[in-house]
Design a protein around this nucleic acid. Structure first.
Length: 724
DNA sequence: TTAGTTAAGATTTTT
DNA sequence: TCTTAACTAA
């Protein structure tokens, strides 16, 4: 009797074939919902069980942390004993993993900093100014994009293409690129793009190092291969090595990162790149209803540059897609939440719901409505906890402690908290450092500048405090202990608690939470170090404040939704200009990419799909008339069911005092019940009018207008009298 | 010279 | 709506 292989259980023929494939190049063209992740994880299991491959000899790469985590989870489930040994990382985290082991070879020192976008921008800003140009003419963002896209294509600063004939504008950007790289190196720092770029350079410069990793990782898997850009493509080839045990998985219809340099051609040319490639197509969708799959197929058929394919499902027909026409974006959020509430009555599980939108900015109204209705939710992407100003300041402090050469971080904190070192002084110091080619860290205490006595004294104190903390690191204090004494020594707590309004209190709490996160890291790490902690968080993406919810409605951009699935999907903001986004209209192939994006969104839905659009919306400050997305007209009517919600615009009820949540450490005796429009009296500012009430419990914030002046207060800390 | 205030300007998608 | 640059008072 043939023994039943549990690894193959429940798989269809092409899936089995992909799982059983042993050596050599393998291309899996996996349509949406065709069980791709399942195939990858089972393939890993099969290599280990059947072919006796050691788990750490397998390296699987993805694009997002979320996808990497999910894959790691599923592999661990399948292989409880050895799953954790499989290398599962994003391209960027793999790069960092490798670069940290060869720091000298890439011309850096240990403890290097990984710059986030804001530090990159401030460095670029300096470069632009120092080269004598106006930041309004050369916007840091634009320059950075040019540099980034250059790195995506593995182009060195010296090779930067300035056009034919030479474009003076690009010639200047090239100079900036060169200067930026030079300074970044002097500051012992890397940026995101370097993580992959320098790994490729390392492998090309040192073939023996590449060989070491080829010997280590004998089997390479790359998920979402259609989203690889040129450097990632080169890295994939280098990792595949001589053995070419490379398995890539992808779907050209789901390529949505061309703006980050992704090149669909990579997946289309895979067979040419690797002559003996085995190609397997997964075309049966197990996820969605017939209606959803057929609607998606009709939509994507409007794209000209794509491989013809036939995605089908044996699932039931399902319900028609609901199209919700709303009077305004405000109404839209209300209607979506109401529908979630009524559907929830049946399924009783919020995890089944997802709200998608094109841009992060669209999340606000939904968030508000969910909060008012006490529906648990999580926002993925967008603003991270680590993006908060005060947290960035803390990270800058820690970066300087680990890497004193990091002048960009040093500049960020040189006058935070305010220590009388203003713009003029900073400019003098900075100039000296650049002119004499010395680290700023040294210049602040060792210069011949004619600074005020007090300014110089405060710089000396600043420096000696930093040195003191550095001493503590070498004495083996824990990262959290260092951070705690940093907060006290630098008088950050003092500075923030003296602020009377909401912000100060909130910031101090955030810093407290930051320290908690360091402690958490310490607990789950063997040899915790500040350096490693900083490296880790530099690659982290957001999951709205670590709220530990078991059940929640998911809010995310369509980009973030790739690879996920939900029973109920609400695709919101289906208006021309929003989706497809107006910024994409001038880009070549822009509309087709937006359409693929829409295709991705639709194919996330298992049971029910809702499209919503509003007839009126705000763009900039103007209220504009909006029109339904062109994509809606590309889906045949028979799959859609239109409902028009025409509501009278109402003023939103803004009081949230109904459900007070009280924290254990303090109690709220009685907060005044404030409503928009009420008149109140403040000790210092006199009588004013309430403009806005946000939040609940002790976090209730109120915005009050005193004549022309508007102020924010934290209700729990602000004595207010209601004036009748 | 610094720090706080007011006016203007800018807005995709992510590692 | 939120950030940044210019402006003004101390």
């Amino acid at each position: 009797m043939k023994q039943l292989n549990p690894i193959l259980e429940g798989l269809n023929e092409p899936q089995k074939e992909a799982v059983l494939h042993h050596e050599g190049p393998l291309l899996i063209l996996a349509g949406a919902g065709s069980g791709k992740t399942r195939v990858i994880t089972h393939r890993i299991a099969n290599l280990i069980f059947t072919h006796r491959v050691l788990p750490y000899k397998i390296c699987a790469l993805t694009f997002t942390n979320k996808a990497a985590n999910e894959m790691a989870e599923r592999v661990k489930k399948l292989l409880p004993n050895s799953g954790h040994l499989v290398m599962i990382k994003t391209f960027h985290s793999l790069g960092l993993y490798i670069l940290r082991r060869h720091t000298e070879k890439i011309g850096l020192q240990s403890g290097f900093t990984v710059y986030d976008t804001s530090l990159q921008e401030s460095l670029i800003k300096e470069v632009v100014k120092d080269l004598g140009f106006d930041v309004r003419e050369f916007r840091p963002n634009t320059v950075l994009q040019a540099i980034q896209s250059s790195k995506d294509n593995y182009i060195f600063p010296e090779e930067f293409d300035t056009g034919e004939p030479t474009d003076p504008q690009l010639e200047i950007i090239k100079k900036m690129y060169i200067e930026y790289e030079k300074r970044k190196k002097n500051q012992n720092a890397l940026d995101f793009g370097d993580l992959v770029f320098l790994t490729v350079k390392l492998f090309l410069d040192y073939p023996e190092i590449k060989q070491t990793y080829n010997n280590l990782w004998e089997y390479i898997l790359v998920d979402e291969y259609q989203d690889t850009n040129h450097v990632q493509y080169i890295l994939t080839h280098l990792l595949a090595g001589e053995k070419k045990n490379l398995c890539v998985v992808g779907d050209d219809d789901q390529s949505i990162y061309s703006w980050r340099g992704a090149d669909i051609q990579n997946i289309l040319d895979f067979e040419k790149d690797f002559p003996n490639t085995k190609v397997i197509k997964l075309e049966e969708n197990y996820r969605s209803t017939k209606n959803i799959i057929e609607a998606a197929s009709h939509l994507i058929a409007n794209n000209i540059s794509r491989k013809e394919k036939n995605l089908f499902t044996n699932n039931p027909k399902g319900e028609k897609i609901q199209v919700l026409e709303c009077a305004s974006d405000y109404d839209e959020s209300e209607i979506v939440i109401e529908l979630i509430k009524s559907e929830y009555q049946k399924s009783k599980n919020y995890n089944k719901f997802a709200i998608f939108y094109r841009t992060n900015a669209q999340s606000r109204l939904f968030e508000e409505k969910l909060r008012v209705n006490s529906i648990p939710y999580k926002i993925f992407g967008g603003f991270r906890f680590f993006d908060r100003m005060e947290i960035k300041d803390m990270i800058a402090y820690l970066s300087v402690l680990v890497n004193p050469l990091d002048s960009s971080s040093l500049l960020r904190i040189i006058n935070f908290p305010p220590r009388g070192v203003g713009e003029t002084t900073v400019e003098k110091l900075r100039r000296t450092a650049i002119d004499q080619d010395r680290p700023l860290y040294e210049v602040i205490v060792n210069n011949n500048l004619d600074l005020r006595k007090q300014t110089q004294a405060s710089l000396v104190e600043f420096h000696s405090n930093l040195e003191d903390l550095r001493q503590k690191i070498s004495e083996g204090y824990l990262p959290s202990q260092i951070t705690e004494s940093l907060v006290v020594q630098m008088r950050i707590d003092e500075e923030l608690s003296k602020a009377q309004d909401i912000e100060g209190k909130e910031r101090l709490e955030n810093i407290q939470q930051f320290i908690e996160s360091i402690k958490e890291y310490e607990q789950k790490t063997e040899n915790p170090s500040l350096e490693e902690y900083l490296n880790q968080i530099s690659l982290l993406t957001s999951e709205e404040d670590g709220k530990d919810l078991k059940e929640y409605v998911t809010l995310m951009t369509v980009h973030n939704s790739k690879g996920l699935e939900f029973d109920y999907v609400f695709m919101t903001g289906m208006e021309n200009g929003t989706f497809p986004h107006w910024m994409s209209q001038d880009e070549e192939g822009g509309l087709e990419e937006e359409r693929r994006l829409c295709y991705v969104a639709i194919t996330r839905a298992r049971e029910k799909l809702f499209f919503s659009y509003s007839k009126i919306g705000r763009r900039q400050r103007m209220t504009e008339e909006l029109f339904p997305s062109i994509f809606l007209s590309e889906i045949p009517e028979k799959y859609l069911n239109y409902t028009s919600y025409n509501r009278k615009p109402q003023t939103p009820p803004l009081t949230k005092n109904a459900n007070l949540q009280t924290k254990a450490n303090w109690s709220i005796k009685s907060l005044p019940e404030l409503t928009k429009g009420m008149r109140v009296k403040h000790k210092q500012y006199g009588v004013g009018k309430v403009i806005e009430v946000v939040g609940e419990g002790e976090n209730t914030k109120v915005k009050i207008a005193f004549g022309e002046i508007q102020k924010n207060f934290l209700l729990a800390y602000t004595p207010l009298e209601i004036v009748f």
